[in-house]
Every structure is written in C-alpha cells, then in structure tokens.
Simulated assay, not measured.
Amino acid sequence: MAAIKPITGMLRRGLITDLSIALGLGLVFSNAFWYGFHVPRTNARDNYYKKLEEQRAARQGA
C-alpha cells in the first residue's frame, strides 16, 4: 500500500495566498469606492451647502 503525502504545506500556502488576494482586492475596491465615489459626492454636497449659505448671506446683506 502506498503512503499518501501530507498536504499541510499546501493548505497553509493556499490559505496565505487566499488571504493575501482577499485583503489586496478589499483594499483596492475600498479605495476605489472612497476616492471614486464618496469623496467627490462629499465635496459636491459641501459646495452645494456653501453656495446656499452664501446666497442666504447675500439676501440678508451680511
């Protein structure tokens, strides 16, 4: 009967590879969301309210 080779090294290597890929992709997509969607929308919102406040101040003569 032939002995079966242990697979512990393959399991550990696969786990490290899977975790590295998952963390890498997570960082890439989270940065894409943050700088591609969240920051521009936040800046647009802040500019909108700044413009409203300037208009309100101009109407009141302050």
Results as ranks from 00 to 15, higher is better:
G9R: 01
T8V: 12
P40K: 07
Y49I: 06
A22F: 07
S20T: 12
F37V: 13
A62K: 05
A62F: 10
A62W: 08
N43F: 06
S30M: 13
K51A: 14
G24H: 03
P40G: 07
I4N: 02
G9S: 04
G61K: 00
V39E: 06
I16G: 00
V39L: 05
S20N: 03
R12G: 02
I16K: 04
D46S: 13
P6Q: 11
I16D: 00
R13C: 01
A62I: 13
L23N: 09
K51N: 09
T42V: 09
Q55H: 04
G14L: 08
L52G: 04
L52W: 11
L11T: 00
I7K: 07
T8A: 11
L25F: 14
Q60F: 15
I4C: 04
G36P: 03
A57S: 10
P6N: 14
P40N: 08
A58M: 02
G24I: 04
I21L: 11
M1N: 09
A32H: 07
S30V: 09
R56D: 07
I16S: 01
R56P: 00
L23R: 08
E54W: 08
T17L: 15
A58S: 10
K50G: 11
Q60K: 13
V28Q: 03
A22K: 06
I4A: 08
A32P: 01
V28I: 15
F33T: 08
F29A: 05
T42Y: 13
F37D: 05
G9D: 03
V28L: 14
K50Y: 15
F33S: 06
P6Y: 09
D18S: 15
N47S: 15
A32L: 14
I7L: 12
T42K: 15
V39A: 03
G61V: 01
F37P: 00
T42H: 11
S20Q: 03
M1V: 07
K5A: 09
E54T: 10
T8C: 03
R41Q: 14
V28S: 03
D46G: 07
R59E: 12
P40E: 08
V39P: 02
I4L: 10
A62E: 05
L11C: 00
R13G: 03
F29V: 14
R45N: 10
D46P: 00
S20F: 11
L23M: 12
I4H: 03
R59C: 01
Q60W: 12
H38G: 02
L25H: 03
L27W: 12
A62M: 05
Y35M: 08
R41K: 14
L11N: 00
P6R: 09
K50M: 10
I4P: 04
A32Q: 07
S20W: 05
K51C: 01
